[in-house]
């Protein structure tokens, strides 16, 4: 059910505030060039195109995007037009990282510094693309892998993926998923890349800085972006940014960076660790968690506490 009532509970709770000086400084820093031209065929309120705007702004014009089957390969438009103002290579679902590996090696052999970026969804990263990705990380390919995570196969009609959290309803788990979300960040960390980070489309300035930083490293880097999906998560379109912020504030999503194994937790998640908002505030506006069993909510809460404690311990480790 789409909620068109704009004076909803979540809206009235957020007080009127002025943007902080720091926030405005970063806005001034971000280049004005758009590499995602208006207008793509993305759904209204799509956080995939929001995240992609900032990934490409940070990468600049000397970039090649490798896109496996995912929402991005649909929203770029159909021949003879494309909405993306940089070269894009569309490749089969499981082959994105393998393709980028060859491409990156060819560019480096030719003495070019062109950025090679894989922009894949959670299905193309956690499930289908994982072996090619693992291989590319093992070979130490000089590229950036961006996984935008809407926690299901959104493009084909919201089927369950490895990234779907416990208790979420999808078209293939109509009573709620019974398994946990796969911890892809731990799998990547096991490959020991020079740089990996998590980000959220709701914090574009933070995402911009992390992409810029990731591209300065030689070798593979990984950024995992939370991308809320209005039709799939079943909330009204204007709440996309709000939903991403609620995920971070409730601790469901943690923003951190891992640089040569050293973990740094982001400022927004530090606040969530000290004073998290109730998890119900994040779950209630989403149709996919409607009627969730209180026991499942308790398990989710325990997982959040465990995950935050694990990251805090890693950060404190010398």
């Amino acid at each position: 059910m789409i909620n068109n009532d704009r004076s909803s509970i979540a809206l009235s709770r957020s007080p009127i505030r002025s943007p902080s000086l720091q926030e405005l400084d970063i806005i001034a820093e971000i280049p004005k060039e758009e590499y995602v031209l208006k207008c793509t065929s993305a759904c209204a309120g799509c956080s995939d195109s929001l995240a992609l705007r900032y990934v490409l702004k940070a990468a600049g014009p000397d970039t090649v995007l490798v896109v496996p089957a995912c929402c991005t390969s649909v929203i770029q438009g159909i021949w003879p037009n494309t909405a993306f103002n940089i070269p894009v290579y569309n490749i089969a679902f499981g082959a994105a990282a393998a393709c980028a590996s060859g491409m990156s090696n060819a560019f480096r052999k030719a003495g070019k510094k062109t950025n090679v970026i894989v922009y894949a969804g959670d299905g193309g990263t956690l499930d289908i693309g994982i072996q090619a990705m693992s291989g590319a990380f093992e070979r130490g390919t000089d590229f950036l892998y961006v996984c935008y995570d809407n926690e299901a196969y959104g493009n084909t009609g919201m089927q369950r993926s490895g990234a779907t959290p416990l208790g979420a309803k999808t078209t293939t788990t109509p009573t709620g998923k019974t398994d946990f979300k796969k911890d892809i960040d731990a799998i990547i960390a096991a490959h020991d890349p020079p740089y990996q980070a998590t980000a959220a489309a709701a914090y574009p300035q933070d995402l911009f800085k992390k992409v810029q930083k990731a591209l300065t490293f030689r070798g593979p880097s990984f950024i995992h972006v939370l991308a809320p999906c209005p039709p799939g998560w079943r909330y009204s379109t204007e709440k996309t940014v709000e939903m991403g912020k609620l995920a971070v504030k409730s601790g469901m999503w943690v923003l951190y960076e891992r640089e040569y194994g050293k973990v740094t937790i982001g400022a927004q998640s530090k606040v969530a660790m000290k004073k998290p908002i109730p998890l119900e505030d994040y779950l209630a506006p989403q149709g996919r968690f409607k009627g969730i069993d209180p026991k499942t909510v308790d398990i989710l809460k325990q997982r959040i506490v465990k995950n935050l404690a694990k990251l805090a311990a890693e950060e404190a480790a010398p």
């Binding site: 031209l37 208006k38 207008c39 793509t40 065929s41 209204a44 929203i75 770029q76 438009g77 159909i78 021949w79 003879p80 037009n81 494309t82 909405a83 993306f84 103002n85």
Partner: peptide
């Protein structure tokens, strides 16, 4: 078959 960057690749989405 080469696609070229064009504004409004998906048509006038304002009608949505």
């Amino acid at each position: 078959a080469i696609s070229r960057p064009t504004g409004g690749a998906a048509g006038k989405t304002g009608t949505w």
